[in-house]
Simulated assay, not measured.
Amino acid sequence: MTSIIYKISPRTAWQQAESAGRFTGAPVDLADGYIHFSTAAQVRETAAKHFAGAADLVLVAVDAAALGADLVWEPSRGGALFPHLYADLPMSAVLWAKPLPLGADGVHLFPPLAD
């Protein structure tokens, strides 16, 4: 599996997580019982499908290996495997967090991503 996974979060929720030292999840994560992540190959589609037109977002890169056995790869969209974290996300696993702005065309502008 890929070594870097990505989380899209509202900026205010991410700021609260940074202050707390851990991210417990967005409402959809809490409802599903795990924190949703995407790979570099999946995250643009995730943004388009679940965050279309949303501004003031943050893209968070996470070291998948740092999450251990709590990170599970499970089938989702069309059978593709998506990373799901069955625990809080510790800030120690975060590689970086960057703004995820909307372009003039309403599509999110991603920084360079690594697998």
Results as ranks from 00 to 15, higher is better:
residue 103 G to K: 14
residue 15 Q to T: 03
residue 66 A to C: 01
residue 77 R to W: 09
residue 37 F to N: 05
residue 44 R to E: 05
residue 110 F to S: 10
residue 112 P to S: 13
residue 35 I to N: 07
residue 20 A to R: 10
residue 39 T to H: 01
residue 43 V to I: 13
residue 4 I to L: 02
residue 105 D to E: 15
residue 14 W to M: 05
residue 26 A to F: 03
residue 65 A to V: 08
residue 100 L to R: 13
residue 36 H to G: 08
residue 99 P to D: 14
residue 97 A to F: 06
residue 36 H to A: 04
residue 89 L to W: 14
residue 39 T to L: 08
residue 1 M to R: 09
residue 27 P to L: 09
residue 9 S to Q: 06
residue 45 E to I: 02
residue 42 Q to S: 02
residue 83 P to Q: 05
residue 84 H to R: 15
residue 109 L to W: 09
residue 47 A to M: 02
residue 3 S to A: 12
residue 80 A to M: 05
residue 94 V to S: 09
residue 3 S to N: 07
residue 57 L to M: 12
residue 28 V to L: 05
residue 69 A to M: 02
residue 98 K to H: 11
residue 109 L to P: 07
residue 2 T to G: 00
residue 38 S to D: 06
residue 93 A to D: 12
residue 28 V to R: 15
residue 80 A to W: 00
residue 48 A to Y: 00
residue 69 A to Q: 05
residue 22 R to Q: 14
residue 15 Q to K: 11
residue 66 A to D: 05
residue 63 D to F: 02
residue 63 D to Y: 01
residue 71 L to C: 08
residue 51 F to N: 11
residue 104 A to E: 15
residue 92 S to E: 12
residue 106 G to P: 12
residue 72 V to Q: 11
residue 114 A to M: 14
residue 49 K to H: 10
residue 72 V to H: 12
residue 42 Q to K: 02
residue 44 R to K: 09
residue 24 T to I: 10
residue 54 A to W: 14
residue 43 V to S: 03
residue 20 A to G: 00
residue 105 D to Q: 14
residue 88 D to P: 13
residue 48 A to H: 02
